[in-house]
Design a binder for these strands. Structure first.
Lengths: 207, 207
DNA sequence: TTATAGCAGGACGTAGCGTCCAGTAATCTG
DNA sequence: CAGATTACTGGACGCTACGTCCTGCTATAA
């Protein structure tokens, strides 16, 4: 398939990703530099710039590389149990070493518009989509009413999770996941009279 | 009051804060540097380092300077209306120029542990506390049941707001504030049987 | 008047930035 | 095999900001 010319070195690619992870693990993300990556990977600086525009791009690829084995979400027949499992998996996957990478990438996305686009589309939006699809399957089984905004539910969850990560407002543990599960289940229990009543009220109040 | 020696120059202080805001406004936060601040403020670099440890600290002080006139939250007798007003005020205050400052500071907090501490304690925790106190006053009036975790409510709100800011997942407008208001009101409507049932379930499920 | 603290102006070495070049290495096409 | 094409190395480049230091001057309190 690939045209003429020397093919890209897979060894160099892996060495770069590994070096980046090692440096972050040992010295923290702020200490990561393109020069340092090239040195540690024993690779020319030119090669690094050839394939990645910034250190954040390197880290994002390393992260996606490791997170390739995301097992699909198992759906049962009990929304409460399924959601609890789903949220716990998500919360559990945002701890320790991974947590440090996540917050660093989110920070970088705020400072680098080009990286922001790839991070938002190739990571954040993906995660939201997975959750929304999970909820839509439950709705198809009749476990969620038609009047609940599933996008909003997903945003409440990821918002709370990211807030804990970024604001260090509390532990990211099983209890946190359970509290969120209970709250979201309450919102998913579509008591339509109350819900539509509330919407009408808000419309009136706005005028 | 102050001991001997030349007093701190208020003119220099204001010049530094103003210069920082101007540079951010014109060229964006990433273009802000300590050297640039000193140049623009026509102030010695030494003076800047004398009073602020980092550019983020300068911006945080400038932000707090401008946000000094935060009017106290008016409590009425209707939780729904009060909460709607409260959330809208908060959402409205996180837009435009201020939004750019906020995301930059949050980003910096992830990369600079020393700044993270001051940002979390002197800003994020403050905002949460104001909201929790607002909710506690409503609870004291009997508008919120005793079994609702007000800290969690506040975290859901700020989480969603910050997520919109950082992930650019949607517009930060009146409709967004209203959706959040409706969702939180639903959670604040303490239907205790349902809630405690859910908690018991979660305890059983954990064992 | 003297001690004390703040400010201006500039110099310093360090380090990463992002780009460029010349030379070498690996692969496809004819 | 020969030539075209692309990738990788190694080093160099100017640039900019970093954070610290020094000298001399200025403004206030005791």
């Amino acid at each position: 398939m690939s045209g003429p010319g020397r093919p890209r070195s897979e060894a160099a690619r892996r060495a770069v990703l590994l070096a980046a992870l090692e440096i972050v693990g040992e010295s923290g993300y702020p200490a990561l530099t393109m020069e340092g990556i090239a040195r540690r990977a024993a690779v020319s600086k030119q090669t690094v710039y050839r394939w990645w525009p910034s250190k954040a791009a390197v880290v994002l690829e390393a992260l996606n590389e490791g997170a390739a084995e995301i097992a699909p979400t198992p759906d049962g027949e009990d929304l409460a149990a399924d959601l609890r499992a789903f949220l716990w998996r998500s919360v559990h996957g945002a701890r320790g070493r991974t947590a440090r990478l996540l917050v660093a990438l989110m920070a970088e996305a705020q400072l680098d518009p080009a990286f922001a686009r790839s991070f938002q589309s190739s990571f954040l939006a993906q995660r939201r989509a997975v959750m929304v699809e999970f909820l839509e399957r439950a709705r198809a089984r009749g476990e969620i009413g038609p009047d609940v905004d599933l996008e909003l539910i997903a945003e409440l969850f990821f918002g709370a999770l990211w807030y804990r990560l970024l604001a260090a407002s509390g532990p990211i543990d099983r209890n946190f996941a359970d509290e969120l599960t209970d709250a979201l289940l309450e919102l998913l229990a579509d008591r339509s009279e109350h819900a539509s009543g509330s919407e009408i009220e808000s419309i009136l109040r706005r005028s």
